[in-house]
Nucleic acid binder design. Structure first.
Lengths: 196, 196
DNA sequence: GATTTAATGTGAAACAATTCACAAAATATG
DNA sequence: CATATTTTGTGAATTGTTTCACATTAAATC
Protein backbone atom coordinates (compact mmCIF):
# COMPACT_ATOMS: atom_id res chain seq x y z
CA UNK A 1 0.00 0.00 0.00
CA UNK A 2 2.70 2.45 0.99
CA UNK A 3 4.61 1.30 -2.08
CA UNK A 4 1.67 2.18 -4.27
CA UNK A 5 1.12 5.56 -2.64
CA UNK A 6 4.77 6.44 -2.98
CA UNK A 7 4.78 5.40 -6.63
CA UNK A 8 1.75 7.61 -7.17
CA UNK A 9 3.77 10.55 -5.96
CA UNK A 10 2.08 10.86 -2.57
CA UNK A 11 4.70 12.13 -0.13
CA UNK A 12 2.79 12.02 3.15
CA UNK A 13 0.11 9.79 4.63
CA UNK A 14 -2.01 10.07 7.78
CA UNK A 15 -2.73 7.28 10.18
CA UNK A 16 -6.40 7.36 9.25
CA UNK A 17 -5.56 6.96 5.56
CA UNK A 18 -3.44 3.90 6.26
CA UNK A 19 -6.10 2.60 8.61
CA UNK A 20 -8.82 2.83 6.02
CA UNK A 21 -6.73 1.04 3.45
CA UNK A 22 -5.62 -1.75 5.72
CA UNK A 23 -8.58 -2.50 7.93
CA UNK A 24 -7.06 -1.30 11.21
CA UNK A 25 -8.02 1.72 13.27
CA UNK A 26 -5.90 4.88 13.18
CA UNK A 27 -4.94 4.27 16.83
CA UNK A 28 -3.68 0.79 16.05
CA UNK A 29 -1.56 2.11 13.22
CA UNK A 30 -0.04 4.81 15.42
CA UNK A 31 0.51 2.46 18.37
CA UNK A 32 2.29 -0.04 16.19
CA UNK A 33 4.45 2.59 14.51
CA UNK A 34 5.21 4.11 17.88
CA UNK A 35 6.33 0.79 19.32
CA UNK A 36 8.86 0.40 16.55
CA UNK A 37 10.05 3.99 16.79
CA UNK A 38 8.59 5.03 13.47
CA UNK A 39 7.81 8.73 13.94
CA UNK A 40 5.51 11.05 12.03
CA UNK A 41 5.02 14.81 12.14
CA UNK A 42 2.33 16.43 14.27
CA UNK A 43 0.11 17.67 11.60
CA UNK A 44 1.98 16.49 8.47
CA UNK A 45 1.41 12.75 8.99
CA UNK A 46 4.06 10.26 7.92
CA UNK A 47 6.46 10.61 5.00
CA UNK A 48 5.86 7.76 2.59
CA UNK A 49 9.51 7.64 1.65
CA UNK A 50 10.72 7.41 5.24
CA UNK A 51 7.98 4.95 6.07
CA UNK A 52 9.05 2.77 3.19
CA UNK A 53 12.68 2.61 4.23
CA UNK A 54 11.80 2.16 7.92
CA UNK A 55 9.50 -0.71 7.11
CA UNK A 56 11.96 -2.31 4.74
CA UNK A 57 14.59 -2.50 7.41
CA UNK A 58 12.04 -3.49 10.04
CA UNK A 59 10.71 -6.38 7.99
CA UNK A 60 14.14 -6.95 6.53
CA UNK A 61 12.65 -6.83 3.08
CA UNK A 62 15.83 -5.12 1.94
CA UNK A 63 17.43 -8.45 1.40
CA UNK A 64 15.52 -11.32 -0.16
CA UNK A 65 14.57 -14.26 2.02
CA UNK A 66 15.28 -17.64 0.55
CA UNK A 67 12.60 -20.24 1.12
CA UNK A 68 11.96 -23.68 -0.31
CA UNK A 69 8.64 -25.14 -1.34
CA UNK A 70 7.94 -28.80 -0.66
CA UNK A 71 5.01 -30.49 -2.39
CA UNK A 72 4.09 -29.54 -5.94
CA UNK A 73 0.47 -30.57 -6.01
CA UNK A 74 -2.21 -28.05 -6.95
CA UNK A 75 -1.49 -25.65 -4.15
CA UNK A 76 2.27 -25.98 -4.44
CA UNK A 77 2.18 -25.15 -8.12
CA UNK A 78 -0.07 -22.18 -7.51
CA UNK A 79 2.32 -20.85 -4.86
CA UNK A 80 5.30 -21.39 -7.14
CA UNK A 81 3.67 -19.17 -9.75
CA UNK A 82 2.40 -16.62 -7.28
CA UNK A 83 3.86 -13.28 -8.35
CA UNK A 84 3.28 -11.42 -5.14
CA UNK A 85 5.86 -13.40 -3.19
CA UNK A 86 8.78 -11.99 -5.19
CA UNK A 87 7.46 -8.47 -4.71
CA UNK A 88 7.43 -9.07 -0.99
CA UNK A 89 11.03 -10.18 -0.91
CA UNK A 90 10.19 -13.87 -0.65
CA UNK A 91 12.34 -15.90 -3.00
CA UNK A 92 11.55 -19.55 -3.67
CA UNK A 93 14.98 -20.99 -4.39
CA UNK A 94 13.81 -24.50 -5.19
CA UNK A 95 10.75 -26.73 -5.20
CA UNK A 96 10.55 -30.39 -4.24
CA UNK A 97 8.23 -33.34 -4.67
CA UNK A 98 8.44 -37.09 -4.15
CA UNK A 99 6.78 -37.62 -7.47
CA UNK A 100 9.36 -37.05 -10.23
CA UNK A 101 6.58 -36.64 -12.78
CA UNK A 102 5.64 -33.36 -11.19
CA UNK A 103 8.74 -32.10 -12.91
CA UNK A 104 6.69 -31.89 -16.05
CA UNK A 105 4.62 -29.12 -14.50
CA UNK A 106 4.13 -25.84 -16.25
CA UNK A 107 6.17 -23.95 -13.70
CA UNK A 108 9.39 -22.23 -14.53
CA UNK A 109 10.86 -23.88 -11.47
CA UNK A 110 12.70 -27.11 -11.66
CA UNK A 111 11.13 -29.61 -9.31
CA UNK A 112 13.78 -31.53 -7.40
CA UNK A 113 13.35 -34.94 -5.84
CA UNK A 114 13.51 -35.10 -2.07
CA UNK A 115 17.07 -36.43 -1.92
CA UNK A 116 18.39 -33.08 -3.11
CA UNK A 117 16.92 -31.33 -0.07
CA UNK A 118 20.02 -31.40 2.11
CA UNK A 119 22.25 -30.07 -0.62
CA UNK A 120 20.05 -27.13 -1.54
CA UNK A 121 19.11 -26.12 1.99
CA UNK A 122 22.80 -25.94 2.79
CA UNK A 123 23.88 -24.22 -0.39
CA UNK A 124 21.38 -21.36 0.00
CA UNK A 125 21.29 -21.48 3.81
CA UNK A 126 17.53 -21.72 3.74
CA UNK A 127 15.75 -21.32 7.08
CA UNK A 128 12.10 -21.32 6.06
CA UNK A 129 10.09 -23.94 4.17
CA UNK A 130 6.59 -23.97 2.76
CA UNK A 131 4.95 -27.36 3.21
CA UNK A 132 2.16 -28.19 0.77
CA UNK A 133 2.25 -31.97 0.83
CA UNK A 134 -0.66 -34.39 1.52
CA UNK A 135 -1.52 -34.85 5.22
CA UNK A 136 -0.13 -38.34 5.33
CA UNK A 137 3.43 -37.22 4.59
CA UNK A 138 3.36 -33.85 6.36
CA UNK A 139 4.92 -34.90 9.68
CA UNK A 140 7.54 -36.98 7.96
CA UNK A 141 8.59 -34.19 5.60
CA UNK A 142 8.54 -31.72 8.46
CA UNK A 143 10.91 -33.78 10.60
CA UNK A 144 13.32 -34.17 7.69
CA UNK A 145 13.29 -30.43 7.10
CA UNK A 146 14.10 -29.65 10.72
CA UNK A 147 16.97 -32.13 10.69
CA UNK A 148 18.38 -30.28 7.71
CA UNK A 149 18.32 -26.94 9.46
CA UNK A 150 14.91 -25.47 8.64
CA UNK A 151 13.68 -23.29 11.52
CA UNK A 152 10.37 -21.95 10.21
CA UNK A 153 7.52 -23.80 8.50
CA UNK A 154 4.43 -22.52 6.71
CA UNK A 155 2.15 -25.52 6.91
CA UNK A 156 -0.69 -25.83 4.40
CA UNK A 157 -1.55 -29.39 5.40
CA UNK A 158 -4.37 -29.95 7.88
CA UNK A 159 -2.26 -31.70 10.52
CA UNK A 160 -0.68 -30.28 13.65
CA UNK A 161 3.03 -30.74 13.20
CA UNK A 162 5.09 -31.84 16.17
CA UNK A 163 8.21 -29.69 16.30
CA UNK A 164 10.85 -28.73 18.86
CA UNK A 165 10.26 -25.34 20.51
CA UNK A 166 12.99 -23.62 18.53
CA UNK A 167 11.03 -24.15 15.32
CA UNK A 168 8.15 -21.83 14.43
CA UNK A 169 5.15 -23.18 12.56
CA UNK A 170 2.35 -21.23 10.95
CA UNK A 171 -0.65 -23.37 10.09
CA UNK A 172 -2.70 -22.07 7.20
CA UNK A 173 -6.00 -23.79 6.51
CA UNK A 174 -7.83 -22.62 3.43
CA UNK A 175 -10.87 -24.69 4.35
CA UNK A 176 -11.04 -22.99 7.74
CA UNK A 177 -10.89 -19.55 6.15
CA UNK A 178 -13.78 -20.36 3.87
CA UNK A 179 -15.78 -22.19 6.51
CA UNK A 180 -15.55 -19.27 8.89
CA UNK A 181 -17.15 -16.97 6.33
CA UNK A 182 -19.94 -19.47 5.76
CA UNK A 183 -20.44 -19.59 9.51
CA UNK A 184 -20.66 -15.81 9.86
CA UNK A 185 -23.04 -15.45 6.97
CA UNK A 186 -25.34 -18.12 8.32
CA UNK A 187 -25.44 -17.05 11.90
CA UNK A 188 -24.61 -13.33 11.70
CA UNK A 189 -22.87 -13.62 15.00
CA UNK A 190 -19.49 -14.78 16.16
CA UNK A 191 -18.94 -18.51 16.20
CA UNK A 192 -16.48 -20.71 18.05
CA UNK A 193 -12.87 -20.48 16.96
CA UNK A 194 -12.43 -24.18 17.29
CA UNK A 195 -12.28 -26.48 14.30
CA UNK A 196 -11.46 -30.11 14.88
CA UNK B 1 -9.63 -34.95 13.55
CA UNK B 2 -12.72 -36.22 15.36
CA UNK B 3 -13.78 -37.78 12.08
CA UNK B 4 -10.52 -39.71 11.90
CA UNK B 5 -10.69 -40.82 15.53
CA UNK B 6 -14.24 -42.01 15.13
CA UNK B 7 -13.34 -43.90 11.96
CA UNK B 8 -10.49 -45.55 13.87
CA UNK B 9 -13.02 -46.90 16.32
CA UNK B 10 -12.17 -44.53 19.17
CA UNK B 11 -15.38 -43.92 21.11
CA UNK B 12 -14.24 -41.31 23.62
CA UNK B 13 -11.74 -38.43 23.65
CA UNK B 14 -10.43 -36.16 26.38
CA UNK B 15 -10.03 -32.43 26.16
CA UNK B 16 -6.26 -32.79 26.43
CA UNK B 17 -6.17 -35.24 23.52
CA UNK B 18 -8.09 -32.85 21.31
CA UNK B 19 -5.91 -29.99 22.52
CA UNK B 20 -2.71 -31.74 21.59
CA UNK B 21 -3.96 -32.56 18.15
CA UNK B 22 -5.28 -29.13 17.39
CA UNK B 23 -2.86 -26.71 18.99
CA UNK B 24 -5.19 -25.37 21.67
CA UNK B 25 -5.03 -25.87 25.41
CA UNK B 26 -7.38 -28.31 27.15
CA UNK B 27 -9.04 -25.35 28.89
CA UNK B 28 -9.77 -23.64 25.61
CA UNK B 29 -11.32 -26.79 24.22
CA UNK B 30 -13.55 -27.21 27.28
CA UNK B 31 -14.53 -23.54 27.41
CA UNK B 32 -15.50 -23.56 23.79
CA UNK B 33 -17.48 -26.78 24.07
CA UNK B 34 -19.09 -25.50 27.22
CA UNK B 35 -20.22 -22.29 25.57
CA UNK B 36 -21.99 -24.26 22.88
CA UNK B 37 -23.55 -26.70 25.36
CA UNK B 38 -21.48 -29.64 24.22
CA UNK B 39 -21.20 -31.80 27.33
CA UNK B 40 -18.79 -34.57 28.23
CA UNK B 41 -18.70 -37.04 31.10
CA UNK B 42 -16.89 -36.23 34.31
CA UNK B 43 -14.54 -39.05 33.84
CA UNK B 44 -15.05 -40.61 30.43
CA UNK B 45 -14.31 -37.48 28.37
CA UNK B 46 -16.38 -36.80 25.28
CA UNK B 47 -18.06 -39.38 23.06
CA UNK B 48 -16.68 -39.05 19.55
CA UNK B 49 -19.99 -39.98 18.03
CA UNK B 50 -21.95 -37.38 19.98
CA UNK B 51 -19.25 -34.80 19.35
CA UNK B 52 -19.41 -35.45 15.66
CA UNK B 53 -23.15 -34.98 15.42
CA UNK B 54 -23.10 -31.94 17.73
CA UNK B 55 -20.39 -30.31 15.66
CA UNK B 56 -22.08 -31.09 12.40
CA UNK B 57 -25.22 -29.35 13.44
CA UNK B 58 -23.26 -26.51 15.04
CA UNK B 59 -21.22 -25.84 11.93
CA UNK B 60 -24.15 -26.80 9.77
CA UNK B 61 -21.93 -29.19 7.91
CA UNK B 62 -24.93 -31.50 7.66
CA UNK B 63 -25.96 -29.74 4.53
CA UNK B 64 -23.48 -28.66 1.90
CA UNK B 65 -22.76 -24.99 1.45
CA UNK B 66 -22.81 -23.72 -2.07
CA UNK B 67 -20.10 -21.23 -2.93
CA UNK B 68 -18.81 -19.78 -6.16
CA UNK B 69 -15.22 -19.15 -7.12
CA UNK B 70 -14.34 -16.05 -9.11
CA UNK B 71 -10.95 -15.82 -10.78
CA UNK B 72 -9.37 -18.92 -12.30
CA UNK B 73 -5.72 -17.89 -12.23
CA UNK B 74 -3.16 -20.04 -10.46
CA UNK B 75 -4.72 -19.83 -7.06
CA UNK B 76 -8.27 -20.16 -8.34
CA UNK B 77 -7.42 -23.34 -10.20
CA UNK B 78 -5.66 -24.76 -7.17
CA UNK B 79 -8.71 -24.06 -5.01
CA UNK B 80 -11.03 -25.58 -7.59
CA UNK B 81 -9.08 -28.83 -7.41
CA UNK B 82 -8.65 -28.74 -3.64
CA UNK B 83 -10.14 -31.98 -2.35
CA UNK B 84 -10.49 -30.96 1.26
CA UNK B 85 -13.23 -28.44 0.56
CA UNK B 86 -15.72 -31.11 -0.44
CA UNK B 87 -14.90 -33.12 2.66
CA UNK B 88 -15.66 -30.08 4.76
CA UNK B 89 -19.05 -29.56 3.19
CA UNK B 90 -17.96 -26.73 0.95
CA UNK B 91 -19.33 -27.16 -2.53
CA UNK B 92 -18.06 -25.01 -5.38
CA UNK B 93 -21.08 -24.84 -7.66
CA UNK B 94 -19.42 -22.82 -10.42
CA UNK B 95 -16.25 -20.99 -11.31
CA UNK B 96 -15.92 -17.72 -13.21
CA UNK B 97 -13.30 -15.74 -15.06
CA UNK B 98 -13.27 -12.78 -17.43
CA UNK B 99 -10.83 -14.63 -19.64
CA UNK B 100 -12.77 -17.23 -21.66
CA UNK B 101 -9.53 -19.05 -22.46
CA UNK B 102 -9.31 -20.14 -18.86
CA UNK B 103 -12.06 -22.54 -19.81
CA UNK B 104 -9.39 -24.72 -21.30
CA UNK B 105 -7.98 -25.33 -17.86
CA UNK B 106 -7.40 -28.82 -16.57
CA UNK B 107 -10.14 -28.49 -14.00
CA UNK B 108 -13.24 -30.61 -14.06
CA UNK B 109 -15.22 -27.42 -13.51
CA UNK B 110 -16.67 -25.48 -16.34
CA UNK B 111 -15.42 -21.91 -16.17
CA UNK B 112 -18.23 -19.47 -16.84
CA UNK B 113 -17.85 -15.94 -18.10
CA UNK B 114 -18.86 -13.18 -15.73
CA UNK B 115 -22.21 -12.49 -17.38
CA UNK B 116 -23.54 -15.79 -16.12
CA UNK B 117 -22.95 -14.74 -12.49
CA UNK B 118 -26.45 -13.45 -11.79
CA UNK B 119 -28.13 -16.51 -13.21
CA UNK B 120 -26.06 -19.00 -11.24
CA UNK B 121 -26.03 -17.12 -7.94
CA UNK B 122 -29.81 -17.05 -8.11
CA UNK B 123 -30.30 -20.59 -9.30
CA UNK B 124 -28.24 -22.08 -6.47
CA UNK B 125 -29.00 -19.31 -3.96
CA UNK B 126 -25.31 -18.83 -3.33
CA UNK B 127 -24.41 -16.56 -0.42
CA UNK B 128 -20.63 -16.94 -0.28
CA UNK B 129 -17.99 -16.23 -2.93
CA UNK B 130 -14.27 -16.88 -3.08
CA UNK B 131 -12.47 -14.02 -4.82
CA UNK B 132 -9.13 -14.91 -6.40
CA UNK B 133 -8.86 -12.21 -9.05
CA UNK B 134 -5.98 -9.76 -9.62
CA UNK B 135 -5.94 -6.75 -7.27
CA UNK B 136 -6.98 -4.34 -9.98
CA UNK B 137 -10.36 -5.99 -10.51
CA UNK B 138 -11.01 -7.10 -6.92
CA UNK B 139 -13.17 -4.18 -5.78
CA UNK B 140 -15.14 -4.17 -9.00
CA UNK B 141 -15.87 -7.91 -8.86
CA UNK B 142 -16.71 -7.60 -5.18
CA UNK B 143 -19.31 -4.88 -5.75
CA UNK B 144 -20.94 -6.89 -8.51
CA UNK B 145 -21.12 -9.92 -6.26
CA UNK B 146 -22.81 -7.99 -3.48
CA UNK B 147 -25.35 -6.55 -5.90
CA UNK B 148 -26.22 -10.09 -6.92
CA UNK B 149 -26.89 -11.18 -3.37
CA UNK B 150 -23.54 -12.46 -2.12
CA UNK B 151 -23.21 -11.83 1.64
CA UNK B 152 -19.83 -13.37 2.45
CA UNK B 153 -16.50 -13.04 0.65
CA UNK B 154 -13.23 -14.90 1.07
CA UNK B 155 -10.77 -12.44 -0.39
CA UNK B 156 -7.43 -13.71 -1.64
CA UNK B 157 -6.47 -10.42 -3.29
CA UNK B 158 -4.25 -8.01 -1.38
CA UNK B 159 -6.73 -5.12 -1.32
CA UNK B 160 -9.12 -4.05 1.44
CA UNK B 161 -12.57 -4.42 -0.05
CA UNK B 162 -15.14 -1.75 0.69
CA UNK B 163 -18.38 -3.47 1.58
CA UNK B 164 -21.64 -2.58 3.36
CA UNK B 165 -21.77 -3.72 6.98
CA UNK B 166 -24.12 -6.59 6.25
CA UNK B 167 -21.43 -8.29 4.18
CA UNK B 168 -18.67 -10.27 5.86
CA UNK B 169 -15.20 -10.35 4.35
CA UNK B 170 -12.31 -12.60 5.30
CA UNK B 171 -9.00 -11.41 3.89
CA UNK B 172 -6.47 -14.18 3.33
CA UNK B 173 -2.95 -13.14 2.41
CA UNK B 174 -0.59 -15.96 1.60
CA UNK B 175 2.36 -13.56 1.46
CA UNK B 176 1.59 -12.34 4.96
CA UNK B 177 1.46 -15.88 6.29
CA UNK B 178 4.87 -16.65 4.86
CA UNK B 179 6.38 -13.31 5.79
CA UNK B 180 5.31 -13.68 9.40
CA UNK B 181 7.22 -16.95 9.68
CA UNK B 182 10.30 -15.33 8.17
CA UNK B 183 9.94 -12.54 10.69
CA UNK B 184 9.70 -14.91 13.65
CA UNK B 185 12.64 -16.98 12.53
CA UNK B 186 14.82 -13.93 12.07
CA UNK B 187 13.97 -12.13 15.26
CA UNK B 188 12.83 -14.93 17.53
CA UNK B 189 10.41 -12.53 19.13
CA UNK B 190 6.98 -11.23 18.39
CA UNK B 191 6.79 -8.68 15.60
CA UNK B 192 4.19 -6.08 14.69
CA UNK B 193 0.94 -7.37 13.28
CA UNK B 194 0.78 -4.60 10.78
CA UNK B 195 1.55 -5.12 7.12
CA UNK B 196 1.04 -2.20 4.79
C1' DG C 1 -18.30 -49.51 49.93
C1' DA C 2 -14.61 -46.37 51.09
C1' DT C 3 -10.83 -44.20 48.92
C1' DT C 4 -8.17 -42.76 45.24
C1' DT C 5 -7.81 -41.09 40.71
C1' DA C 6 -8.96 -38.72 36.34
C1' DA C 7 -11.66 -35.98 34.08
C1' DT C 8 -15.12 -32.04 33.27
C1' DG C 9 -17.07 -27.37 33.92
C1' DT C 10 -16.55 -22.84 35.30
C1' DG C 11 -15.80 -18.78 38.26
C1' DA C 12 -11.85 -15.72 39.23
C1' DA C 13 -7.29 -13.86 38.12
C1' DA C 14 -3.94 -12.55 34.99
C1' DC C 15 -2.80 -10.98 30.77
C1' DA C 16 -3.37 -8.85 26.16
C1' DA C 17 -5.54 -5.98 22.81
C1' DT C 18 -8.41 -2.18 21.60
C1' DT C 19 -10.53 2.03 22.17
C1' DC C 20 -10.92 6.50 24.37
C1' DA C 21 -9.41 10.90 25.50
C1' DC C 22 -6.51 14.46 25.39
C1' DA C 23 -2.00 17.02 25.75
C1' DA C 24 1.62 18.43 22.58
C1' DA C 25 3.17 19.95 18.25
C1' DA C 26 2.97 21.93 13.80
C1' DT C 27 0.73 24.17 10.33
C1' DA C 28 -2.92 27.22 8.60
C1' DT C 29 -5.81 31.25 8.97
C1' DG C 30 -7.21 35.86 9.97
C1' DC D 1 1.37 37.25 15.94
C1' DA D 2 -2.65 35.29 18.12
C1' DT D 3 -6.05 31.86 17.34
C1' DA D 4 -8.03 27.85 15.28
C1' DT D 5 -7.29 23.45 13.31
C1' DT D 6 -5.28 19.08 12.38
C1' DT D 7 -2.76 15.23 13.50
C1' DT D 8 0.54 12.66 16.26
C1' DG D 9 1.80 10.08 20.46
C1' DT D 10 0.54 7.91 24.48
C1' DG D 11 -1.31 7.20 29.22
C1' DA D 12 -5.79 5.42 31.16
C1' DA D 13 -10.02 2.87 30.71
C1' DT D 14 -12.28 -0.66 28.64
C1' DT D 15 -13.04 -4.85 26.60
C1' DG D 16 -11.64 -9.45 25.31
C1' DT D 17 -8.95 -13.70 25.83
C1' DT D 18 -6.22 -17.09 28.15
C1' DT D 19 -4.73 -19.32 32.04
C1' DC D 20 -5.33 -20.85 36.77
C1' DA D 21 -7.46 -23.18 40.41
C1' DC D 22 -10.62 -25.97 42.23
C1' DA D 23 -15.28 -27.87 43.29
C1' DT D 24 -17.83 -31.62 41.20
C1' DT D 25 -18.61 -35.97 39.24
C1' DA D 26 -17.83 -40.63 37.86
C1' DA D 27 -15.11 -44.39 37.36
C1' DA D 28 -11.36 -47.46 39.15
C1' DT D 29 -9.09 -49.67 42.84
C1' DC D 30 -8.51 -51.75 47.16
Amino acid sequence: MVVRLNAMGVTTVFSHTLAEGSGFTPEQVRKDFSEYKIRGHRRGGYSTEKLLSDMESLFKRDRMSNVILVGMGNLGQALARYQQLQQRGINIVATFDIDPYKQKSRTEYQVYSMDRLQEIVERFSVLVAIVAVPDISAQDVCSQLIDMGIRGIVNFSPVMLKVPEFVVVNNVSLSDEIESVIWFVRSLKKGPTLYL
